[in-house]
């Protein structure tokens, strides 16, 4: 279980998180929605330790993330980055098996290669892709490789940062389905941040809306359309008029 309590984070004068409280039960898929600049990515980065929060607590499995062994903590995570964040200088299979080629999870090179090819197959890519470099792949293929890398070490927790950004609707649907299948199949806890409402409906068990630095609404995805929350209603219907200010 991931638990955030009263999380605050500011960058200079810009107070991004103003007391985020959120609980993600084990094995559940939580999707965080919200406008650009509301702190969705910052929240994920705080959990991963990429950005230190100013105050508040983050616990994973009941343990404060700042007091646990960092390597062991990160070994439980997989993350799909918005732009893929694949390493240009490494072939696809080494990107996928990066964690298996070094550190505490190190395996023999042949074994790591086999696992990488298997994970690529799991996300719908042929073994021939393994030897290519990221720059030789399309955006959709890069997302799949990023997904394969996120699941390569069978993590307990997977984060997805804008998984369908920049993809055509069909490819976005494919990625959404893959994420859902993989999360269910692995029994992993998932946190996704997205603007894409079709992703929300495809991936989420629960939804949390982040607005003005706090969780404005959270609940099961099935209750999202009838929440009665004016902020959530405006966001999911994409209306310009409502309590959320839009810059024109």
């Amino acid at each position: 279980m991931i638990e955030l309590r009263d999380l605050h984070k500011a960058f200079g004068d810009n107070q991004v998180l103003r007391g985020v409280n959120l609980t993600v039960p084990k094995g559940e898929s939580m999707v965080i929605i919200g406008g650009s600049g509301t702190g969705k990515s910052v929240t994920l980065k705080c959990i991963l330790g990429l950005v230190p929060p100013d105050s508040g607590t983050i616990t994973v499995g009941g343990k404060d993330v700042r007091k646990t062994d960092r390597d062991a903590f990160l070994a439980r995570f997989g993350m799909l980055f918005q732009g893929g964040a694949l390493f240009d200088s490494l072939p696809v299979w080494q990107n996928v098996a990066f964690r298996l080629l070094r550190g505490s999870l190190k395996r023999p090179r042949n074994e790591a290669h086999e696992i990488a090819v298997e994970k690529l197959r799991r996300v719908g890519l042929k073994p021939e892709v393994a030897g290519k470099f990221p720059a030789e792949l399309s955006g959709g293929m890069q997302k799949r490789v990023g997904l394969a890398r996120a699941i390569c070490a069978d993590p307990d927790i997977i984060f997805f940062d804008e998984p369908t950004t920049g993809l055509d609707p069909i490819m976005a649907g494919v990625i959404n389905e893959l994420i859902r299948e993989i999360v269910v199949e692995m029994g992993a806890t998932a946190m996704t941040i997205t603007h894409d409402m079709s992703s929300v409906r495809a991936i989420a068990d629960k939804v949390a809306m982040l607005h003005d630095g706090v969780i404005q609404w959270s609940g099961p995805v099935s209750e999202m359309d009838d929440s009665g929350d004016p902020y959530l209603d405006q966001f999911i219907h994409g209306r310009a008029d409502g309590p959320i200010e839009s810059v024109r």
Binding site: L48, G78, Q82, L86, S104
Partner: peptide
Amino acid sequence: TMKVTEQIDALVTLST
């Protein structure tokens, strides 16, 4: 470029 494209963040999440 690695920083801008989040490759450095990715390294951290991969325990490196």
